[in-house]
């Protein structure tokens, strides 16, 4: 169902999945272009969690997706405040963030954080610079971004979290999975088999935390 949440800067939409009671896994999509390439995948994970009896939510964050706030007006502080407000709608929230979404859950009151292939702000800014260069310096793969947001992102780091990465990724991780990076795909795609694996893993993690 489509729900809503309020934050200091207005009201945003939030997709809800699964039961009305119990802890809620609140998902943070990556910022900007990668959000388009991972939305269907994250929704599949949340539906799979619902089938396992665990509630999920996918808030639209300020300046992202369907938000009425223009992307170039959003700051990192707004995005973090928005995600915190979405989590505050629930008695108990667990954050699940993908890629640069891991930069957004730092202020949320959550019982735990889980990050899928998290990226630092500096890595994101470097990738955005490459996209801008390929687009003759006009915009970032179609997005207009404020200089303030880019400055904030330069030094933004994910908070401590249970970290999941793919096999072959040399960086530290708590869980290593077989999979391919959907967020790099030229055309948005889904990976239901990987979504099932992740839902199994996240469900077991939430149950272990709740036990």
């Amino acid at each position: 169902m489509i729900d809503q949440y309020d934050w200091a800067g207005g009201r945003e939409a939030m997709l809800r999945f699964g039961p009305d009671t119990g802890p809620v896994v609140v998902a943070a999509l990556p910022l900007f272009e990668e959000a388009n390439r991972t939305r269907a995948f994250v929704v599949t994970i949340l539906r799979q969690l619902a089938e396992r009896g665990i509630a999920g939510a996918l808030p639209e964050l300020p300046g992202q997706g369907e938000s009425l706030l223009p992307t170039e007006a959003a700051t990192l502080a707004d995005l973090r405040a928005g995600f915190a407000a979405a989590c505050a709608r629930f008695d108990k929230a667990y954050a699940f963030a993908v890629r640069s979404g891991a930069l957004l859950d730092t202020q949320a009151e959550s019982a735990g954080r889980c990050h899928l292939v998290p990226t630092t702000g500096a890595e994101l800014v470097r990738e955005l610079g490459r996209l801008r260069g390929l687009n003759d310096g006009n915009n970032y793969a179609g997005n207009l971004l404020s200089p303030a947001l880019l400055t904030e992102l330069e030094t933004a780091m994910p908070a401590a979290a249970r970290t999941m990465r793919f096999e072959g990724d040399a960086r530290a991780a708590d869980v290593k999975l077989q999979g391919a990076p959907l967020w790099r795909r030229a055309e948005p795609d889904n990976d239901p088999a990987l979504a099932h694996l992740l839902a199994d893993d996240i469900a077991a993690w939430v149950r272990a935390c709740e036990a």
């Binding site: 272009e33 990738e127 490459r130 996209l131 390929l134 687009n135 793969a141 790099r184 795909r185 030229a186 055309e187």
Partner: peptide, 12 residues
């Protein structure tokens, strides 16, 4: 499939 946006993804 290899347009300029995909080039950025491939290189990164």
């Amino acid at each position: 499939e290899l347009d300029s946006l995909a080039v950025a993804g491939v290189l990164t």
